[in-house]
């Protein structure tokens, strides 16, 4: 039978759900071992963060698409958390190979890393479900305009999690490497997010990028202080 957009979308959703069936809502034993190997166990901090971000996400989701969809928002978040754990595990495995270490205490206690990774996982879930079809509007790729209407298209998730585009950008490439089952369309979507950040969002007033560039120019002075994130 001929492939239709609906059939293609259904197949993508089935694939995503299928891939995540075995992942579970809790960290796997491998992931839990990585947490235990940390100097400071990140587990409690992660659970608290997930709870807080879950509430924020569900609230903003139902505000955007209507209170009838609050359950759907929660379902999307749950799928996002599964993908977040799955990708985190793969990232840590490849970092263990690369660095020959098992203690990732600094990374796993970095709130920005977790928020960026979860935001990317949720963006994949939302793009798979074609969440933008909930409402018209958002970023118009054809003419680069933005409408005032709120919807769930990228960069919506950055606003929900108060996340700097610059930090979201950092996880995209590693995310794609860690999750080889992502469909071509989703990879293309993440590339679109990447391009949007690089060409537009990262250069908005107040972007952390300007401060980082300033530090880079100041060079020596910045190095004398406690080494800032370069």
């Amino acid at each position: 039978p001929p492939q239709t957009p609906i059939k293609a979308a259904m197949a993508s959703i089935q694939q995503l759900r299928g891939d995540l069936v075995s992942s579970g809502d809790q960290p796997s034993t491998t992931l839990a071992t990585y947490f235990k190997n940390c100097t400071i166990d990140p587990t409690q901090g992660m659970l608290k963060r997930l709870e807080m971000l879950g509430q924020t996400f569900s609230q903003r989701f139902s505000q955007a698409v209507g209170p009838r969809f609050i359950i759907i928002g929660k379902q999307r978040f749950t799928l996002g958390v599964r993908l977040y754990y799955k990708v985190m595990e793969e990232m840590l495995k490849s970092e263990e190979k690369r660095l020959s270490v098992q203690n990732f205490s600094k990374l796993l206690n970095d709130s920005t890393f977790h928020t960026s990774l979860l935001a990317c996982a949720l963006e994949v879930v939302m793009a798979t479900y074609g969440e933008s079809s909930f409402k018209a509007g958002g970023y118009n790729q054809a003419n680069g305009s933005e409408t005032a209407e709120t919807d769930l298209c990228f960069p919506w998730i950055l606003d929900v999690f108060s996340l700097a585009a610059f930090d979201f950008y950092k996880v995209i490439e590693s995310f794609i490497k860690a999750e080889p089952t992502l469909s071509k369309d989703i990879v293309k979507h993440l590339e679109t997010c990447e391009n949007l950040i690089m060409e537009k969002i990262a250069w908005r007033t107040g972007s952390v990028l300007f401060e980082l560039l300033k530090q880079e120019h100041e060079g020596g002075a910045a190095e004398q202080a406690e080494a800032p994130a370069s």
Binding site: M91, S94, E95, R98, L99, F104, K106, L107, D110, T112, F113, K170, V171, E173, S174, I176, K177, P180, L182, K184, V187, L190, E191, A229, S230
Partner: peptide
């Protein structure tokens, strides 16, 4: 299997990008 261009040539892993190596 996809056409993504891995462009961050300087970085080798996520720890480095978050300054956590």
């Amino acid at each position: 299997s996809h056409d993504y261009h891995f462009g961050l040539e300087d970085h080798e892993g996520i720890s480095e990008l978050f300054d956590c190596e």
